[in-house]
Write a protein that binds this DNA or RNA. Structure first.
Lengths: 352, 352
DNA sequence: CGCCGGCATGTTAGCGATAACAGCATAAGG
DNA sequence: CCTTATGCTGTTATCGCTAACATGCCGGCG
């Protein structure tokens, strides 16, 4: 059996070095940490003892005795299915690289987010990671500000000034998707808005509007349906859009859940997707590839975002990196799958 | 304030937990390390103190004090939506409690699982966690046996003898669900089988058959459709079942994805769920509560299962707890939501 | 001359956890 | 009924390192 090979002849300690250099362990420590109040001659002595013994400080002991390892919390409430797992994978990875401990805490639907957050804070974390939808809770942000706990908002489209944040550009992504649909030839493009309490909703809508405008397609408010990011709300919105006398040839839903609902409604009405109706989503959750046809959607690099978030937070905690970039914007990807196609009927000719 | 005064809001220590639980720090340590010589009542006391304080052991102190830190791998390939995140939360939590480093490795659809597993082993893990569907890969198990790497199979219905494993009783759960449907008055109950390479499929089917038999309802093989646990396969299976001259009044799908597909097919045909057709799933993935109506399904305590798996693995690695229980079977829950109801039409009278 | 202040260094006391052993009930055995 | 096992649980002593304080040594000042 190959016991962990590291346990060989116990490595030299700071005491071995101290003896050999004829000084006290403390002086060795000072030399190691580059403190400037050691006489050059002594420093030299210690240094040579160190290299003679091939000494390396024990990081565990170091963090135990010293500044202590920092811990960061991850507070999540109800992200869509695949979001959390990706987020976890990324933050875990980075947390271990940066040598911080990650405490994961869930806010159950019934819980009051404030209570849970307070619990986390009281448990002594030095900072908190807030993936959506918690990143847009004003009450939570207020609490964090009061308690002076640092936080990184992930996925919030427009974080308050100075707030640490990581996100994609929701507006630009929605713009790209709308442009994609326009490129396929669609002119009547329905849009299902998301939960108005989340800032991302407004931004995605803005991207949609802006793309239409740039393509000189007039925005028809009939084609814009309200939604809440839930499947259920998507059902209602899709019904509303498809009930229109001049129904859209494509529906761009504010997220995958509502897009999936739109597909369901289309099927219920005997419409083929994408033959009779193009449907696109946003987020690229697992739902997007679970249903049939698989959804064309916007993919967020969630794992990378969470990695970036951990980095930002740790740097802030250790005060290593000044605010050279408090808000980190990563790139999205438009993923094309089977739910989009050019419109079957020629659209009404647009302008002369 | 430049630095948080060291004493103020530091993380809770083993001593805080000990005080709160009214025991000595040593006992807490024993609980954390899963040593088996602690009275269950005491263990419970300590555990609740741990979660109340949101305590996590300081890895630095631990490795300093002796216990060399071990690492375990989590190898996953393609669990259904939501499974992974729950699994991660549970295993993370327990990994941090037990102070093992969790190395997460994904096996992409194209990858050969053997290669990925070998990579993980070579990176020096002391054991591997195998959630479904990898837990049922014979080739993988063979490799692990050869390499003498310990593994815990999670979700495999009948693990090889002596293999570390955690699961629920799939057969019994399917039995309970079928019984539930019979209790509602259904007699023609369709069943969609799962991927035949996974042992859970056969067990769920066995539970279904056994419940019918006990209720003296003859098993009609017409009502049993093949499936693969994918949404797509559920679509085909549901079409097949609903095409039947004497169609079922209820469909029990082998998992939630296929149940969701069944709901979609029903809607496409203008059937109301649950008014015209009852649909039940299995697994209680997030999909179950995403769609409408929300699915009645079987809930597995995935987070607890992964916690148990980590425990089992760590204990085996540290050789602290003998094989007092190599296969840990946890309880499932039948969750009733909106997708089931008594059959609308009186079923054909059964027997004289 | 003697006291002060500043620098280089040594001492002491933990950091948070565990190993090893010591106690102390309770159960088993004679 | 007393002794020897057999759990559980508590004590003590570290692990390697570093804050915080204590010491000794020097020159400068009144």
């Amino acid at each position: 059996m190959v016991k962990t090979s590291r346990r060989q002849r116990s490595a030299p300690t700071i005491i071995d070095v101290a003896k050999r250099a004829g000084v006290s362990p403390m002086t060795v420590s000072r030399v190691i940490n580059g403190e400037n109040n050691v006489r050059p001659a002594t420093r030299e002595l210690v240094n040579s003892a160190i290299s003679a013994l091939n000494y390396a400080p024990n990081p565990a002991a170091r963090s135990l005795a010293g500044a202590g390892q920092s811990r960061i919390g991850l507070l999540y409430s109800n992200p869509s299915a695949g979001y959390l797992s990706e987020f976890l994978v990324g933050s875990l990875d980075q947390a271990s690289r940066r040598d911080v401990q990650l405490i994961v805490e869930r806010c159950e639907p019934g819980d009051h987010e404030i209570e849970v957050a307070r619990h986390l804070i009281e448990s002594g974390v030095d900072g908190i990671l807030l993936p959506p939808p918690l990143c847009d809770s004003p009450a939570l942000l207020r609490l964090l500000a009061e308690e002076q706990v640092r936080a990184v908002l992930v996925g919030s489209a427009v974080p308050p000034a100075g707030q640490l944040a990581v996100s994609i550009d929701d507006c630009q992504a929605a713009y790209a998707m709308t442009r994609h649909l326009l490129g396929l030839g669609h002119r009547r493009i329905g849009f299902i808005k998301g939960n108005p309490t989340l800032k991302a909703s407004a931004h995605r809508y803005a991207g949609y509007c802006s793309a239409l405008e740039d393509a000189e397609v007039v925005l028809d408010l009939e084609l814009v349906a309200p939604g809440l990011f839930t499947y259920r709300s998507g059902l209602d919105a899709a019904e509303q859009l498809l009930d229109l006398a001049d129904a859209p040839t494509a529906i761009f839903a504010g997220n995958d859940d509502m897009a999936a609902a739109s597909v369901a409604v289309a099927h219920r009405r005997g419409l083929d997707v994408p033959g009779d109706l193009t449907v696109c989503g946003f987020d690229d959750t697992t739902l997007a590839t679970t249903i049939w046809p698989e959804l064309t959607t916007i993919h967020q690099p969630i794992a990378d975002m969470s990695r970036a978030a951990v980095d930002l937070l740790v740097s802030a905690i250790r005060q290593q990196s000044p605010p050279d970039q408090r808000h980190c914007v990563l790139d999205y990807t438009l993923i094309r799958r089977q739910s989009d196609a050019p419109p079957r009927r020629r659209p009404h000719s647009a302008h002369p």
